[in-house]
């Protein structure tokens, strides 16, 4: 006689929950590390190449670390024609773009955030839409517009091709929408009652903007000024198309001068490329304290 015994249910073999979580987390960490390496490696390669002597740069076998570091590439880059002109031009463009964009964006965002007027919502949507248009698609129409504007008396001092002021106006067209949008967000975060309390306390409406809103917008202003700085400093296409004369070119265009018909001078190019981001990196680092809350 045989009796059937029901099989005892066996729990599926699985890792305990904390261990599973640890493995999953390690997987994500590894993925993050891979992404970091992919992003950081080109920068490392640029900096390493800047310190390598010529034969190490052109060696068929990759040399991962500069075994005989040299500063000659930096010396060559700095001594390259128009370097200091390019630095000066870049600084002028960046300072003017940052200053103008902050003033204009503060006033525009104030209007968009605090006042109700006809077409306000459409304008806000337009600002967002403008940012979605690729810059390269605008280069040709902008070039035609700018070259014709240069022929118009009265504005030909400011607008026109091969003028730093023309490039500044061009840069404002893509820096301003972002800064206005961002500052509007910061302004909407400031309670209306603060402004009203200041007005009841004895200030004018403008006084309330300046004494109460402006200090509270500090993080927003820092964040948008860093954005404007980086955009204006790193921009290449517009400067390359609009500035023909070597004396008027910005640093990014000057960098391109290392590539000629006869080839590319990699050492000085990499040294120049290492030097170029220094101001924008410094401005980001020095402002990071103030922009923490932004």
């Amino acid at each position: 006689m045989s009796s059937q015994v029901a099989p005892t249910p066996v729990a599926p073999v699985s890792l305990p929950a904390p261990r599973r979580r640890r493995f999953r987390r390690a997987g994500w960490d590894l993925l993050g590390l891979v992404v970091l390496v992919v992003m950081v490696f080109p920068i490392y390669w640029m900096v390493a190449t800047a310190f390598k002597p010529g034969h190490d740069i052109l060696s068929y076998k990759p040399i991962w670390f500069p075994t005989h570091p040299t500063l000659s590439n930096f010396k060559d880059a700095i001594n390259q024609a128009f370097f200091w002109n390019a630095v000066k031009n870049s600084l002028i463009v960046v300072v003017v773009v940052v200053a103008l964009s902050l003033v204009l964006a503060f006033l525009a965002s104030l209007a968009l955030a605090k006042f109700r007027f006809y077409g306000r919502k459409s304008f806000i949507t337009l600002i967002l839409g403008v940012q979605m248009v690729p810059l390269t698609a605008l280069i040709i129409p902008l070039y035609i517009l700018m070259s014709r504007a240069g022929d118009v008396k009265g504005v030909d001092h400011v607008l026109g091709v091969d003028k730093l002021s023309g490039v500044i106006v061009m840069y404002l067209t893509f820096v301003l929408p972002f800064t206005v949008w961002t500052l509007r967000g910061f302004l909407l975060g400031v309670p209306q009652e603060l402004e009203e309390a200041a007005m009841v306390d004895g200030t004018t409406r403008f006084g309330a903007f300046v004494r109460i809103l402006l200090p509270l917008l500090g993080p927003g202003l820092v964040a948008t000024s860093i954005f404007a700085f980086i955009q204006a400093w790193n921009e290449f296409i517009i400067a390359y198309v609009f500035l023909h004369t070597p004396e008027k070119q910005t640093l990014m265009v000057w960098l391109a001068s290392f590539t000629t018909l006869r080839g590319t001078d990699w050492g000085p190019l990499m040294a120049g490329a290492t030097l170029c981001p220094c101001p924008s990196s410094c401005s980001s680092c020095s402002s990071s304290g103030g922009s923490r809350s932004g």
Binding site: L194, E196, T204, L216
Partner: peptide, 20 residues
């Protein structure tokens, strides 16, 4: 009259203290 010329003081629901 503008608020500042009315010489009244207001206490708001959320206090409206200047955070900075």
């Amino acid at each position: 009259l503008a608020p500042r010329d009315r010489d009244v003081a207001m206490v708001f629901q959320n206090y409206a203290l200047y955070p900075h």
